[in-house]
Deep mutational scan, measured.
Amino acid sequence: MISLIAALAVDRVIGMENAMPWNLPADLAWFKRNTLNKPVIMGRHTWESIGRPLPGRKNIILSSQPGTDDRVTWVKSVDEAIAACGDVPEIMVIGGGRVYEQFLPKAQKLYLTHIDAEVEGDTHFPDYEPDDWESVFSEFHDADAQNSHSYCFEILERR
């Protein structure tokens, strides 16, 4: 099963200049909980913004210009990325925008964090048809001392 995991502000903004323009430790914990011990696929820009392999996960970098870091697996196509994951129950696609666009048609599940923030962004989550998805989990949280904005975790499964 292919799943996408993303944090989205208003207007589906997911990033600005290779960074997330908010401070939500709870979302980072949600991300870790849902990706640990699963292969993660990301684009080169996302890889560069993280700066290191995510521990406890097979890191697969999709790029037309593969790098030389041998701590991760470099691939040039969506099919190659899927094959590099091996026989696993769930593959997690973690961004960025172009990689989400490439995998959305193949995805069966979306793990979304909806952030109540209007922020400037240069990267967006692809538009998706809500009628194609069923919400199977939703959990709202107010902003607090650690988390700069209110947010809602949601899991959607393709109908």
Rank of each mutant, 00 (worst) to 15 (best):
A117E: 07
P21C: 15
R12D: 06
V119Q: 12
A145F: 09
V72M: 13
L24F: 09
A81I: 03
E157R: 10
L24S: 05
M92N: 02
G56P: 00
K76W: 12
E118K: 13
G56C: 07
R33Y: 14
E129L: 10
E90Y: 01
E17N: 05
V13P: 00
P105F: 08
L54F: 07
D127W: 11
A29H: 04
I41T: 02
E90A: 03
D79Y: 10
F140A: 13
A83Y: 11
G56H: 12
G97M: 05
W133M: 03
V99C: 13
W47Y: 15
R98F: 14
F103M: 07
G51A: 10
H45E: 05
W22F: 10
V75W: 03
A143W: 06
I61V: 09
I60Q: 01
A29F: 06
P105S: 07
I155E: 04
S135T: 10
D79W: 08
L62G: 02
H141E: 04
T68A: 15
L36P: 00
W74T: 11
K106F: 11
A145N: 09
H124S: 11
S148V: 00
H149C: 06
D132M: 08
D116L: 14
I41K: 02
D11E: 15
Q146I: 07
P55R: 12
E90G: 01
E80F: 08
G67P: 15
A84N: 09
A29I: 02
W30Q: 06
E120G: 12
G121A: 02
E101S: 08
N147C: 05
W133H: 00
K38Q: 02
A83K: 08
L110T: 00
G67C: 15
P21G: 04
G86D: 06
L156H: 06
N18M: 10
R159I: 08
F31H: 00
H141S: 05
F137P: 00
G97T: 05
E154H: 13
A145Y: 09
V136Q: 09
A143S: 07
A145L: 06
Q108G: 08
S135C: 06
D79I: 13
A84C: 11
R44T: 10
Q65N: 12
E139Y: 05
C85N: 03
A107S: 05
N59E: 06
D70T: 15
P89T: 10
D122L: 00
F140M: 13
M20L: 01
F153T: 05
L54A: 00
E134V: 09
S3Q: 02
